[in-house]
Amino acid sequence: MALLQVRGLKVAYGGIRAVRGIDLDVDDGELVCLIGANGAGKSSTLRGITGLVHASGEIRLAGKRLGGLPTHAIAREGVALVPEGRGIFARLQVWENLAMGAYARRDKGVDEDLARVYELFPRLAERRQQIAGTLSGGEQQMLAIGRALMSRPRLLLLDEPSMGLAPLMVRKIYDTIQAIARQGVTILLVEQNAHLALQVSARAYVMESGGITLAGTSGELASDPAIQAAYLGS
């Protein structure tokens, strides 16, 4: 059975139906991406899964129902969200941000994981004493991902990690995402930049005005003429 199983997920803001009953699966250890244009409902899907907005439908993590749980409880189940706009604690130092990521943990492996994050992001290790708000956009994105990893998540949700970053930095972030996936972390990646997302992921879903219109392996989708025309600009 899939690690994350979403059935008939609906999210509405007042009368506006942002997500209109989608099905979605992410297997253990898989990197799956959810692509689509601005306003297609990608971020709302993540917000619905993490309990940040009210959602109907069924959400299961390894068989356990998450629907109706508050955000913090879902986080404690092992779902780590890297929100759009990163949501770092701007006035805290880099290491304090990372420590906050392990807030809900009570086991002894935190220092080990901190070392692993610093290894993954040497930039953060150099700047561990720096105030997070003074980091560059790319470094803040690294910090947000590193902080999410500190909770040792079963499922990592990434919301537009390339947003507002210089091309070189985007490349770097995506290399790291691939490295994290290779370490066995299950990732659901939401991305507007379809080209990039299809390169790194194994499977992909395409979202359009609140519904999933296409699904398949990333290779298939990348060569799909409709996708190429709509998202890959060729």
């Binding site: 993490t50 940040l52 508050p70 955000t71 913090h72 409880a73 986080a75 404690r76 780590a80 969200l81 929100p83 949501g87 770092i88 604690f89 701007a90 006035r91 805290l92 420590a99 906050m100 990521g101 807030y103 809900a104 902080r147 999410a148 909770s151």
Partner: peptide, 21 residues
């Protein structure tokens, strides 16, 4: 530390597993 996290960013704090309420 949970208070500081909430002061900084409530959504992020909840995503860290902090019961903000």
């Amino acid at each position: 530390r949970a208070w500081v996290a909430i002061r900084e960013d409530e959504v992020a704090a909840a995503a860290m597993g902090i019961d903000t309420r």
